[in-house]
Amino acid sequence: MTSDTPRQLIACAVLATALALLPIVAPNPYYLDLATKACLAAVVCIGLNLLSGYAGQLSLGHAAFFGVGAYASAILCAKVGITPVVAMLAGCLISAGIAYVMARTVLRLKGHYLAMATLAFGVIISIVLNREVALTGGPDGMSVPRFNLFGYRTTGVWAGYGLAAVALVLAVRTAIVFVNSRVGRALRAIGDSEVAAEGLGIDIARYKTGVFVISAVFASVAGSIFAHADRFVSPAEAGFMRSVEFVAMIVIGGLGSVAGSIVGATLLTLLPQLLAGFDHYRHFLTGLILILIMIFMPAGIVPTLLASGRALHDRYRPFGRSARSVTGRTSEG
């Protein structure tokens, strides 16, 4: 509903304010580092959710695009001496190119084929990062220079956090406008019924390719910022388990929900830290929580909460039917 758009843009402003206040409320490098990671995971998830939650395509290799962005920034800045912004753009171009070629070859097939192709491709990328030791430092990873913009060097965790927060706000705004545009509606239509969408003149292959490329670029940007924020990259960031984590984040937060992407990313980033006190029981408990959320909120946290909020709202307005916002959308991936 586009009547919701201004409301969503207000939410966007609230998010920006909250992100800006965080360093003042919690001026602690450890918290800032976690917040940086959560913001960047959220950027990846917002892009991935456009692909899975709206267009209904599953990707099991999105961490590879994160890795491409991270290593493009790392290698181009550290070994070639290119300025970070340009390196980040180069990473985007490489990710977009790979995504385009993959989509063209695989997306014409229906079913879980994209999932399998992204899985295979993602693992290959992470193997390459592990093996090309001369270029990437292999399994030990490599260090990355600081981010700088037009010669202004940035310092400390603050800078990394600032970049991540700006990226998140931009990603949220982009996604909201995108979803409520003709293109976004076409993608959601594809997710609901390909036959009907095609009959309305929507070029399905083109739209799926487009959204796949976009989601790859979101992941790539997040990867580049991560490289500079952490000043270090390792192949584990591009690994299969990271890809699976991203999928888990959007399903838990809520498919087809921008807010859900942020909630899922934040929760799964913080959960292992919150459970750090349990030491050996950490993995076990994380898995258990994942299962419980899926059993009790199969549509994801945000859509479930919105639905119960709506039900409460409707109860006091028996004749008024509240409009559904895009963030209330649920669908199969």
Partner: peptide
């Protein structure tokens, strides 16, 4: 019917 079931009628 091939309605876009998760979208609003208007959409």
């Amino acid at each position: 019917l091939q309605i876009f079931g998760t979208m609003t009628a208007l959409e």
